[in-house]
Amino acid sequence: MADQLTEEQIAEFKEAFSLFDKDGDGTITTKELGTVMRSLGQNPTEAELQDMINEVDADGNGTIDFPEFLTMMARKMKDTDSEEEIREAFRVFDKDGNGYISAAELRHVMTNLGEKLTDEEVDEMIREADIDGDGQVNYEEFVQMMTAK
Protein backbone atom coordinates (compact mmCIF):
# COMPACT_ATOMS: atom_id res chain seq x y z
CA MET A 1 0.00 0.00 0.00
CA ALA A 2 2.84 2.39 0.86
CA ASP A 3 4.21 1.79 -2.64
CA GLN A 4 1.41 3.97 -4.01
CA LEU A 5 2.88 7.05 -2.31
CA THR A 6 4.86 9.66 -4.24
CA GLU A 7 8.42 10.56 -3.20
CA GLU A 8 7.10 13.94 -2.10
CA GLN A 9 4.49 12.31 0.14
CA ILE A 10 7.10 9.99 1.63
CA ALA A 11 9.35 12.98 2.36
CA GLU A 12 6.44 14.80 4.05
CA PHE A 13 5.61 11.73 6.12
CA LYS A 14 9.28 11.38 7.11
CA GLU A 15 9.11 14.92 8.46
CA ALA A 16 5.85 14.19 10.30
CA PHE A 17 7.37 10.98 11.70
CA SER A 18 10.32 12.89 13.12
CA LEU A 19 7.92 15.29 14.88
CA PHE A 20 6.46 12.28 16.72
CA ASP A 21 9.80 10.52 17.25
CA LYS A 22 10.96 12.99 19.92
CA ASP A 23 14.12 11.11 20.92
CA GLY A 24 15.07 10.34 17.31
CA ASP A 25 15.48 6.59 17.84
CA GLY A 26 13.46 5.68 14.74
CA THR A 27 10.35 4.50 16.58
CA ILE A 28 7.24 6.15 18.01
CA THR A 29 6.21 5.03 21.51
CA THR A 30 2.81 5.53 23.18
CA LYS A 31 4.45 8.27 25.26
CA GLU A 32 5.64 10.14 22.14
CA LEU A 33 2.28 9.68 20.43
CA GLY A 34 0.56 11.06 23.53
CA THR A 35 2.84 14.11 23.65
CA VAL A 36 2.03 15.07 20.07
CA MET A 37 -1.70 14.45 20.43
CA ARG A 38 -1.85 16.54 23.61
CA SER A 39 0.02 19.36 21.88
CA LEU A 40 -2.81 19.28 19.31
CA GLY A 41 -5.41 19.65 22.04
CA GLN A 42 -6.45 15.98 22.17
CA ASN A 43 -6.51 14.04 25.42
CA PRO A 44 -6.14 10.32 24.64
CA THR A 45 -6.09 7.75 27.44
CA GLU A 46 -3.18 5.31 27.78
CA ALA A 47 -5.48 2.56 26.44
CA GLU A 48 -6.45 4.64 23.39
CA LEU A 49 -2.79 5.36 22.65
CA GLN A 50 -2.00 1.64 22.96
CA ASP A 51 -4.87 0.80 20.57
CA MET A 52 -3.60 3.35 18.05
CA ILE A 53 -0.13 1.84 18.17
CA ASN A 54 -1.43 -1.75 18.03
CA GLU A 55 -3.47 -0.94 14.93
CA VAL A 56 -0.33 -0.27 12.89
CA ASP A 57 2.35 -2.16 14.82
CA ALA A 58 2.88 -4.92 12.25
CA ASP A 59 5.81 -6.61 14.02
CA GLY A 60 4.13 -6.43 17.44
CA ASN A 61 7.04 -4.80 19.26
CA GLY A 62 4.87 -2.10 20.86
CA THR A 63 6.21 0.83 18.86
CA ILE A 64 5.72 2.25 15.36
CA ASP A 65 8.68 2.35 12.99
CA PHE A 66 8.77 4.38 9.78
CA PRO A 67 7.53 1.62 7.41
CA GLU A 68 4.59 0.99 9.77
CA PHE A 69 3.94 4.73 9.91
CA LEU A 70 3.92 4.90 6.09
CA THR A 71 1.42 2.04 5.89
CA MET A 72 -0.81 3.83 8.39
CA MET A 73 -0.61 7.11 6.44
CA ALA A 74 -1.29 5.37 3.12
CA ARG A 75 -4.31 3.68 4.68
CA LYS A 76 -5.57 7.00 6.04
CA MET A 77 -5.15 8.64 2.65
CA LYS A 78 -7.08 5.88 0.97
CA ASP A 79 -10.01 6.64 3.26
CA THR A 80 -9.36 10.23 2.17
CA ASP A 81 -9.99 12.69 4.90
CA SER A 82 -13.62 12.70 5.78
CA GLU A 83 -15.26 16.07 6.06
CA GLU A 84 -15.44 15.66 9.84
CA GLU A 85 -11.68 15.02 10.17
CA ILE A 86 -10.93 18.12 8.11
CA ARG A 87 -13.36 20.22 10.17
CA GLU A 88 -11.75 18.88 13.36
CA ALA A 89 -8.27 19.78 12.08
CA PHE A 90 -9.50 23.27 11.14
CA ARG A 91 -10.79 23.74 14.70
CA VAL A 92 -7.37 22.79 16.12
CA PHE A 93 -5.77 25.63 14.12
CA ASP A 94 -8.59 28.17 14.51
CA LYS A 95 -7.88 28.84 18.20
CA ASP A 96 -10.27 31.78 18.65
CA GLY A 97 -13.04 30.09 16.67
CA ASN A 98 -13.62 33.05 14.34
CA GLY A 99 -13.63 30.87 11.22
CA TYR A 100 -10.18 31.94 10.04
CA ILE A 101 -6.65 30.66 10.62
CA SER A 102 -4.30 33.59 11.15
CA ALA A 103 -0.52 33.50 10.84
CA ALA A 104 -0.32 33.69 14.66
CA GLU A 105 -2.63 30.68 15.08
CA LEU A 106 -0.69 28.67 12.51
CA ARG A 107 2.61 29.55 14.20
CA HIS A 108 1.16 28.53 17.61
CA VAL A 109 0.11 25.05 16.43
CA MET A 110 3.34 24.45 14.51
CA THR A 111 5.40 25.50 17.56
CA ASN A 112 3.39 23.10 19.74
CA LEU A 113 4.32 20.37 17.28
CA GLY A 114 7.98 21.25 17.75
CA GLU A 115 8.28 22.94 14.34
CA LYS A 116 10.35 26.09 14.71
CA LEU A 117 9.28 28.19 11.74
CA THR A 118 10.45 31.68 10.81
CA ASP A 119 7.82 34.38 10.32
CA GLU A 120 8.57 34.18 6.59
CA GLU A 121 7.87 30.44 6.52
CA VAL A 122 4.56 30.89 8.35
CA ASP A 123 3.56 33.75 6.03
CA GLU A 124 4.49 31.59 3.04
CA MET A 125 2.27 28.74 4.29
CA ILE A 126 -0.63 31.17 4.72
CA ARG A 127 -0.01 32.66 1.25
CA GLU A 128 -0.03 29.22 -0.38
CA ALA A 129 -3.45 28.40 1.07
CA ASP A 130 -4.95 31.91 0.99
CA ILE A 131 -6.98 31.89 -2.23
CA ASP A 132 -8.88 35.16 -1.70
CA GLY A 133 -5.77 37.04 -0.55
CA ASP A 134 -7.15 38.35 2.76
CA GLY A 135 -4.06 37.22 4.68
CA GLN A 136 -5.75 34.37 6.54
CA VAL A 137 -7.14 30.95 5.73
CA ASN A 138 -10.90 30.33 5.86
CA TYR A 139 -12.52 26.89 6.02
CA GLU A 140 -13.03 26.56 2.24
CA GLU A 141 -9.37 27.42 1.60
CA PHE A 142 -8.33 24.94 4.29
CA VAL A 143 -10.41 22.18 2.65
CA GLN A 144 -8.83 22.98 -0.74
CA MET A 145 -5.36 22.78 0.78
CA MET A 146 -6.07 19.53 2.65
CA THR A 147 -7.64 17.77 -0.33
CA ALA A 148 -5.24 19.05 -3.02
CA LYS A 149 -3.58 16.11 -4.71
Rank of each mutant, 00 (worst) to 15 (best):
A2N: 15
A2L: 09
D3V: 06
D3C: 05
D3I: 00
D3Q: 15
Q4N: 15
L5I: 03
L5E: 07
L5G: 06
T6Y: 04
T6E: 08
T6S: 13
E7S: 02
E8G: 12
E8L: 15
E8K: 07
E8S: 09
E8N: 15
Q9K: 09
Q9H: 11
Q9R: 12
Q9T: 12
I10A: 00
I10R: 03
A11H: 01
A11V: 13
A11M: 04
A11C: 08
E12R: 03
E12V: 07
E12I: 02
E12Q: 12
F13C: 11
F13E: 06
F13P: 00
F13W: 09
F13G: 15
K14L: 00
K14P: 01
K14S: 05
K14F: 00
K14Y: 03
E15L: 14
E15A: 07
F17P: 00
F17R: 00
S18W: 08
S18L: 13
L19W: 14
F20R: 15
F20H: 05
F20C: 13
F20T: 02
F20G: 06
D21K: 02
D21G: 11
D21C: 15
D21W: 13
D21V: 13
K22H: 03
K22N: 13
K22S: 10
D23H: 12
D23A: 12
D23P: 04
D23F: 01
G24T: 09
G24Y: 07
D25K: 03
D25E: 07
D25Y: 01
D25R: 15
D25G: 11
D25I: 06
G26Y: 05
G26R: 15
T27L: 03
T27G: 11
T27C: 02
I28N: 10
I28K: 07
I28V: 09
T29L: 04
T29R: 04
T29F: 06
T30L: 07
T30G: 06
T30W: 00
K31R: 11
K31D: 02
K31F: 07
K31C: 00
K31W: 09
K31T: 10
K31P: 01
K31M: 09
E32R: 01
E32V: 13
E32L: 06
E32P: 01
L33E: 00
L33Y: 06
L33Q: 00
G34A: 04
G34K: 03
T35A: 11
T35P: 09
T35N: 06
V36H: 00
V36F: 13
V36M: 09
M37K: 10
R38L: 06
R38M: 13
S39R: 12
S39Q: 15
L40Q: 14
L40K: 13
L40G: 03
G41N: 02
G41L: 06
G41E: 15
G41Q: 01
Q42L: 12
Q42Y: 07
Q42M: 02
N43A: 06
N43K: 10
P44A: 13
P44S: 11
T45L: 11
E46V: 11
E46M: 15
E46P: 15
E46G: 12
E46A: 09
A47E: 14
A47S: 12
E48Y: 11
E48T: 00
E48V: 10
E48C: 07
E48K: 07
L49S: 09
L49W: 09
Q50L: 14
Q50K: 13
Q50P: 04
Q50M: 01
D51F: 15
D51L: 02
I53Y: 13
I53G: 04
I53N: 04
N54S: 09
N54C: 03
N54H: 08
E55M: 10
E55A: 08
E55S: 14
E55R: 14
V56T: 04
V56Y: 01
V56E: 07
V56D: 02
V56W: 05
D57N: 12
D57A: 07
A58C: 01
A58M: 03
A58V: 13
A58K: 01
A58H: 09
A58S: 07
D59E: 13
G60C: 12
N61L: 03
N61E: 05
G62V: 09
G62R: 13
G62I: 07
T63Y: 00
T63A: 10
T63K: 08
I64D: 06
I64R: 05
I64F: 13
I64E: 05
I64H: 05
D65S: 13
D65L: 06
F66H: 04
F66I: 06
F66M: 02
P67N: 02
P67M: 01
P67T: 11
E68G: 12
E68D: 09
E68V: 05
E68C: 09
E68I: 03
E68N: 10
F69T: 02
F69K: 04
F69G: 00
F69H: 04
L70K: 13
L70Y: 09
L70E: 00
L70N: 15
L70I: 13
L70P: 00
L70W: 12
T71C: 05
T71I: 12
M72F: 15
M73I: 11
M73P: 06
M73S: 01
M73T: 13
M73F: 14
A74V: 11
A74S: 10
A74K: 05
R75I: 12
R75E: 14
R75K: 12
K76L: 03
K76C: 15
M77N: 04
M77I: 11
M77W: 08
K78M: 00
K78G: 11
K78D: 07
D79L: 09
D79G: 11
D79E: 10
D79Q: 07
T80I: 14
T80E: 09
D81P: 02
D81A: 14
S82K: 06
S82A: 14
E83A: 07
E83Y: 04
E83L: 11
E84V: 13
E84P: 04
E84D: 13
E85Y: 10
E85V: 08
E85D: 07
E85A: 08
I86L: 15
I86P: 10
R87P: 08
R87D: 00
R87C: 11
R87W: 15
R87A: 15
R87G: 06
E88Q: 11
E88F: 04
A89C: 05
A89W: 06
A89N: 02
A89D: 00
A89E: 01
F90I: 07
F90T: 06
V92A: 12
V92L: 13
D94K: 01
D94L: 09
D94A: 06
D94V: 06
D94F: 03
K95R: 13
K95H: 14
D96Q: 15
D96N: 13
D96G: 12
G97L: 00
G97M: 14
G97K: 15
N98E: 15
N98Y: 09
G99P: 00
G99H: 05
G99I: 00
G99L: 01
Y100C: 10
Y100F: 08
Y100K: 04
Y100D: 13
I101P: 01
I101T: 08
I101A: 11
S102R: 11
S102F: 05
S102L: 08
A103I: 10
A103R: 13
A103G: 10
A104S: 10
E105D: 11
E105L: 07
L106C: 04
L106S: 04
L106R: 00
R107Q: 05
R107T: 00
R107Y: 01
R107W: 04
H108I: 13
H108N: 13
H108R: 12
V109E: 01
V109D: 01
V109C: 09
V109W: 09
V109N: 01
M110G: 05
M110W: 03
M110K: 06
M110I: 09
M110F: 00
T111N: 00
T111L: 10
T111F: 06
N112T: 11
N112L: 09
N112Y: 09
L113H: 02
L113N: 03
L113C: 11
L113R: 01
G114Q: 02
G114P: 05
G114S: 00
G114D: 03
G114H: 10
E115G: 10
E115I: 01
E115A: 06
E115H: 12
K116G: 15
K116A: 00
K116M: 07
L117D: 02
L117I: 11
T118W: 03
T118E: 11
T118P: 07
D119P: 02
E120N: 11
E120C: 11
E121G: 10
E121Y: 10
V122E: 04
V122K: 08
D123G: 12
D123H: 04
E124Q: 00
E124N: 12
E124Y: 03
M125R: 04
M125T: 09
I126A: 05
I126E: 03
R127H: 03
R127P: 01
R127I: 10
R127S: 07
R127E: 01
R127T: 07
E128L: 06
E128R: 02
E128C: 04
A129I: 00
D130P: 01
I131S: 08
I131V: 12
I131P: 01
I131H: 14
D132E: 08
G133K: 09
G133R: 10
D134F: 03
D134G: 11
G135N: 06
Q136A: 09
V137L: 03
V137I: 12
V137A: 11
V137W: 13
V137F: 07
N138P: 15
N138A: 07
Y139S: 04
E140D: 09
E140I: 11
E141A: 03
F142S: 00
F142C: 02
F142V: 00
F142H: 06
F142A: 04
V143T: 00
V143H: 04
V143R: 15
Q144W: 05
Q144K: 07
T147S: 12
A148G: 07
K149T: 07
K149M: 07
